[in-house]
């Protein structure tokens, strides 16, 4: 799975953690802040956070599947999201197998 994400356009770093485990800092802060904002805004379950500047960071939430953190060059949001959506069933299955 990591290889599939790493092969994605612009991705320099890919990380998978369990959905209830914290991400390394500062991505964990980003995730916590985003979850808080989503809860405050009442938009429902948060699925995706994308931060873009000189570099870009995306965190995908698909419980019970693992959280996926991608970091790399900006401009690859579509490709990152497409890759995550395409592999979402396998991610879910991985979580089920782990459970």
């Amino acid at each position: 799975m990591l290889k599939a994400f790493k092969r994605c356009k612009g991705v320099d770093e890919a990380l998978l953690v369990e959905h209830d485990s914290p991400l390394p800092s500062p991505d964990d802060q980003i995730a916590r802040a985003a979850l808080a904002v989503a809860q405050a805004a009442g938009v429902g379950a948060l699925e995706h956070v994308h931060l873009a500047g000189d570099a870009a960071t995306s965190i995908f939430f698909a419980p019970p599947g693992p959280r996926v953190m991608l970091r790399g060059a900006p401009g690859g949001l579509g490709a990152w999201r497409y890759t995550h959506e395409r592999h979402r069933p396998i991610l879910q299955h991985l979580a089920e197998v782990d459970a």
Binding site: K9, G78, A79, R81, Y82, E85
Partner: peptide, 10 residues
């Protein structure tokens, strides 16, 4: 171009 919901994939 390949597009996913308006975002460029590749």
């Amino acid at each position: 171009v390949l597009v996913d919901q308006g975002l460029l994939v590749d």
